[in-house]
């Protein structure tokens, strides 16, 4: 199958080095400490953060840093085929772990000893790149909750099909069976907090694909930063000066 047309366009009309349209909304749930809704093209994700709060199971409490707990789930209606998804399947356990680890790399956990931070990420619509979308949404939700972090964590996938490195794969490209590389990045320090790849790739091509994914992360980080600044501005202005 042809994934890149001779004109250099992909199946959904993008150029190879183009990310999908991003849309984020912050503080969508008022009962949570922080929440964010993120769309990357047709992939739609909702992230919710509760805490930092008292550790619910005292034996798990850490005396020198915060306990980060993450739960990933997919809505029954998130894919083409509607089906119930059991909670503890291998895929979601692995993804919870991946999201937790890359967020833990950014959260300044040593500032919040004996506390717990819960991150719940739910995929509402899956169209490839859910891993990346979940990490981005979790970052935004944590930032909304006011949890101190080193930097935003931005994540993006990249692949290699028809001899072309492609940025931000959608579902069709993802299921083509080619290599799929997900990267999460602390853009300021250019530190990689997550790097995952299925299937194989020659070393020199790998570097090109990795570079592309990192560029994608930076573009996404810039977009998220704008959204956060705008949100902060709204909050600050509504509060306004206090008269006593």
């Amino acid at each position: 199958m042809e994934y890149v047309s001779p004109e250099g366009l992909r199946l959904d009309g993008r150029r190879p080095k183009e990310v999908r349209q991003l849309k984020c909304e912050l503080a969508v749930l008022h009962r949570a400490d922080g929440s964010a809704y993120l769309e990357m093209g047709n992939t739609k994700v909702l992230a919710t953060v509760y805490g930092p709060h008292e550790v619910s199971q005292r034996s798990q409490s850490l005396h020198d840093r915060a306990l980060v707990h993450c739960e990933y789930s997919m809505a029954t209606f998130s894919t083409g085929e509607r089906r119930r998804r059991p909670k503890g399947d291998r895929r979601s356990v692995e993804l919870s772990l991946v999201i937790r680890q890359s967020m833990e790399a950014a959260i300044l956990t040593h500032l919040l000893p004996r506390t717990q931070i819960d991150i719940y990420v739910q995929v509402l619509q899956a169209d490839g790149g859910t891993r990346a979308a979940c990490i981005n949404a979790a970052t935004l939700a944590l930032a909304d909750a006011g949890v101190p972090m080193r930097d935003l964590v931005a994540s993006c996938a990249a692949g290699y099909l028809n001899g072309t490195p492609l940025l931000d794969l959608n579902y069709v490209e993802d299921s083509a069976g080619g290599p799929d590389l997900t990267v999460a990045l602390l853009p300021k320090a250019e530190k990689v907090t997550l790097l995952q790849m299925d299937s194989k790739l020659p070393l020199d091509t790998f570097e090109a694909v990795l570079g592309l994914a990192m560029d994608g992360c930076k573009a996404i980080a810039a977009h998220m930063r704008q959204a956060l600044l705008e949100h902060t501005r709204k909050q600050a202005v509504v509060r306004g000066p206090v008269r006593l």
């Binding site: 080193r150 930097d151 935003l152 853009p187 600044l229 902060t232 202005v237």
Partner: peptide, 19 residues
């Protein structure tokens, strides 16, 4: 009404995390 409240753009020293 909320937009009116928010449009009072006094230049506030706002930063985003990581800046």
């Amino acid at each position: 009404a909320q937009a009116i409240l928010q449009s009072s753009t006094a230049s506030l020293p706002l930063v985003c995390l990581g800046d």
